[in-house]
């Protein structure tokens, strides 16, 4: 969960600019609450690819993986681990 703080910063800056980061719970459902819609999701993924240099395969892109800050952080952990293990 080491990236969770950074992800939360990004989500708040991008989608909730008038909210302080601490107010957004790590496990709040971002899709259900309407904070991130399908277009917003594309933004999040583009940012993840750019910031963490991960490549998201199409099969990774189920909304389920991006429901909350916590689940995005988890996705990132796995995505980072797999390529380095392959090297």
């Amino acid at each position: 969960m080491r990236h969770a703080e950074t992800i939360r910063e990004f989500v708040v800056t991008e989608f909730l600019p008038d909210v302080s980061a601490g107010e957004l719970e790590m496990d709040l459902d971002l899709l259900e609450s309407g904070i991130v819609d399908s277009l917003g999701l594309l933004k999040v993924i583009a940012w993840l690819e750019e910031r963490y240099d991960v490549v998201a395969e199409n099969e990774d892109l189920t909304p389920e993986r991006f429901r909350s800050i916590a689940s995005i952080a988890e996705f990132l952990e796995q995505a980072n681990r797999s390529p380095s293990e392959a090297e």
Binding site: V19, G34, I35
Partner: peptide, 11 residues
């Protein structure tokens, strides 16, 4: 009041 509170209220 901020947008997070409002979004929760709507959701």
């Amino acid at each position: 009041l901020n947008s997070l509170v409002l979004r929760r209220h709507c959701a």
